[in-house]
């Protein structure tokens, strides 16, 4: 009798311990899983904290324009850019890039001031003066070699600094990705730029020169993107979504720089 009570007690205690162990096991597993989940979520939030959600209310229209641009690019612009790469050596292309960048510096300096970035404005102005003179009309980036660095600023970024940070994404015919604010900014750039449309009548260049610079700039920019766009076409599932995301991230990065 005494022995049977002991056995029963032992079995009962054994089951209780087993139950307790099971509960503890479930509890710790759940805690570990929960911690892993929390860690994943907080990391995800940290990665995406700087970027606002994609704002694309005109997506249907934008995708149609994108398709049109893609066809024009494949049969026209890409071929010209490939030919341009073939006939111009890399140092020549670098000088053309420097020359075009140099022309945008006065507007960049003005925008830096409007954004309250006086140091950047001074660095941009110094770069413009050095490269336009010692660098022979901006063909050589002498200032860059002397470690003078600046951040390019445009009206789109200035509008963002004054509160117009988020605006709908736009795919413009022939011009490519933009936003409503950036498109307005690019019009403002053209109105005041002495090398662009000359709407204020103080242009330093005649209309033929302006057309030549615009055309060279388009082909030169496209040449720089040849490998990236080829890669996107080859590896992507939705090239429109990639270009939209990359454009918006880059702009946020430029605004927050």
């Amino acid at each position: 009798m005494h022995l049977s009570i002991n056995v029963n007690t032992f079995i009962s205690v054994f089951y209780k311990i087993q139950k307790l162990l099971f509960i503890l096991l479930v509890f710790f597993s759940a805690t570990a899983y929960g911690e892993e989940e929390d860690e994943f979520e907080s990391f995800s939030k940290a990665i995406t904290k700087n970027n606002t959600a994609i704002n694309d209310p005109f997506e249907t229209y934008n995708r149609k324009i994108y398709k049109f641009n893609d066809v024009v690019d494949k049969y026209f612009l890409e071929k010209i850019a490939t030919g341009y790469r073939f006939v111009t050596p890399k140092p020549v292309r670098n000088s053309i890039t420097n020359f075009i960048n140099n022309l945008s510096l006065p507007i960049s300096a003005v925008n830096s001031v409007m954004q309250g970035k006086v140091d950047n404005s001074l660095a941009t102005t110094s770069t413009f003066l050095i490269n336009s003179t010692i660098g022979i009309f901006g063909l050589f980036d002498v200032a860059g070699q002397k470690k003078i660095t600046y951040q390019p600023e445009d009206f789109g970024q200035t509008f963002a600094v004054y509160g117009l940070k988020s605006s709908p994404f736009l795919m413009l015919p022939l011009l490519g990705p933009s936003t409503v604010v950036d498109f307005s900014g690019s019009i403002a750039n053209r109105i005041v730029s002495p090398t662009d449309f000359d709407m204020l009548n103080f242009s330093l260049l005649d209309s033929n020169q302006r057309a030549l610079i615009s055309a060279t700039s388009i082909v030169n920019n496209r040449e720089q993107l040849l490998d990236i766009i080829k890669d996107i076409r080859q590896n992507s599932f939705d090239s429109y979504a990639i270009i939209r995301s990359a454009y918006l991230q880059r702009r946020i990065n430029q605004i927050n720089n």
């Binding site: 990665i47 939705d238 430029q254």
Partner: peptide, 21 residues
Amino acid sequence: AEGVSLLETQRSEFDSAITNL
């Protein structure tokens, strides 16, 4: 690269592709 995150770009691309396909 130059302010463009591979993770975010791919997340956006895959989200669009999964939603559509």
